[in-house]
Design a protein around this nucleic acid. Sequence first.
DNA 1: GAAATAAGAAACCCTTGGTTCCTTAATCCC
DNA 2: GGGATTAAGGAACCAAGGGTTTCTTATTTC
Lengths: 207, 207
Amino acid sequence: MSRRRGAELEDAILDAAREELAELGYAKSTMRGIAKRAGTSKAVLYRRWSSLPELFLDTLASRFTNVPVPDTGDLRDDVLELLRHAQTSLGYTRRDTVSGLIADTVHDPRLAQRLRDLIADSALSDAMSTVLELAAERGQIPPGPWPRRVITLPISLLRDDFVVFGIWPSDADLAAVTDEVFLPLLGYASPAGMVRNRDRPSSEHRE
Amino acid sequence: MSRRRGAELEDAILDAAREELAELGYAKSTMRGIAKRAGTSKAVLYRRWSSLPELFLDTLASRFTNVPVPDTGDLRDDVLELLRHAQTSLGYTRRDTVSGLIADTVHDPRLAQRLRDLIADSALSDAMSTVLELAAERGQIPPGPWPRRVITLPISLLRDDFVVFGIWPSDADLAAVTDEVFLPLLGYASPAGMVRNRDRPSSEHRE
DNA sequence: GAAATAAGAAACCCTTGGTTCCTTAATCCC
DNA sequence: GGGATTAAGGAACCAAGGGTTTCTTATTTC
C-alpha cells in the first residue's frame, strides 16, 4: 500500500481535523479521532503539531485573511458589506471552536496571540479605517482620526454576541449594530433621511 | 474524629473550590483536588454537583447580584460608577474561569443559560436603563427609549476585551469606553465643556 | 543499490471525570 | 437511651484522552 508524505499528508490531516471539528465539535474532537479519520497515527500528528489547539489553530488559519475594502460610495453599505464579510468568516466556524480555543490558549501566550490575530480585528479594523476615511472624504462623516475603540466597535459587539451568547449574527443584527450604534456615533446622516435610531426602538429582540 | 454535614460541609467545599480556582486556574482545577483540599472525597462532591462546571458556577453565583443604581446627579459619573461595579465583580474572577466556563457549558443549554445570567447584563443593564432615564429627566441627554444594544454597549465592549483579549479593564479603559463611545453616542455634552472625542486620539494603546 | 528519512501501527504511561461499594459517624425518632 | 436512617469519607475501579516511545517498513535521496 502507498504512503503519503509531506504536504499531501499534512493537507489530509488538516481536512480530517476540519471534518472532526464540524462533526463532533471542539470539545469532543480528539487526536486519536483525527488520526484515524486521516488514516494515519497519533505519532504523525505529534510530529507536526505539539498539541491539539495548535492543530486547530492551523485549521482555521486560512479563513481570516484577505479582507477586501468595500467601496460602494455609501458609508452604510460599506460598513454592512465589511460586517457581512466578518459574518461569513465566522460562519465557517462553530461557536464552541472559538470559545474552546480561547479557553485552551489562555495559558500559552504564543498560542493566545496567534488566536487573537486570527479572530480579532487586525485585518478587519484596517479595512474599517479605510472605509471611514473614504466616507470622510465624501463628506458623509466628520474627518478622523477616530479612536481605535470606535473603529472596532461593531466588530467587538458582534463578537461579544457570538462568543458569550452563542449568537451567530443575523443580517438583522448586522443592520442593528450599524444603524442603532455605529452610524449614529459617527454622526452619519443617511442620504435617504433615515429616522434617528432612538426614536424607533429596536425591532428584534432575543432571549 | 468529627464529620461535617449539610451546609457546613457545603460551604467548606465551595471555599475549597474558590481556593483551587484562584491558585491553579480553571483548566487545572480538578474534582480530586477540590475534594482533597476540602478534606473530603469525590463521592461527596458528586452527591451535590453533577459536574465540575456546575460546581464552579455555584462558586461564582454569589458575586454578580445586587447592582446598586448610582445617582450622583451627573450622567458621566453614574456610568463610570456602574462600570466600576462591573469591573470589581469581574476582578474577583480570573479570565480563564470565564472562558473555561463558556467553553464547558456550550453543550448544556441549562448551564449555558445560568452562566449567561451571571456574567451577562441582566442586572447591570437594568441599572443602566435607570441611569439613562434619570439623565434624560435632568435634560442631559435626549429622552429614550434607547435600543437594548445601546444600553448594554459599554458592558459588551468591556466584556469583549476581558473574554477575548484577556484584558482586565483598567480605569482608563472604563473612561475611554465612556468618553469615546458611550456618551458621544447618547449625545451627552459634558458640563465641563469636554472636548469631542474624535479630536483627541485615544491616549492609551495596547499591543 | 545503500543510507537516510519519515510513515504507520501498537503499546504504554499518567491524569481526570465519573461511579460504586463499603465502613462508620452523626442525626432522627420512638 | 437506643435502634434505624442518613450521609460522610475512603478506596478501588472504569473509560477516555493527551502525550510518548518503540518498532517495522515504505519512500526518497544520493
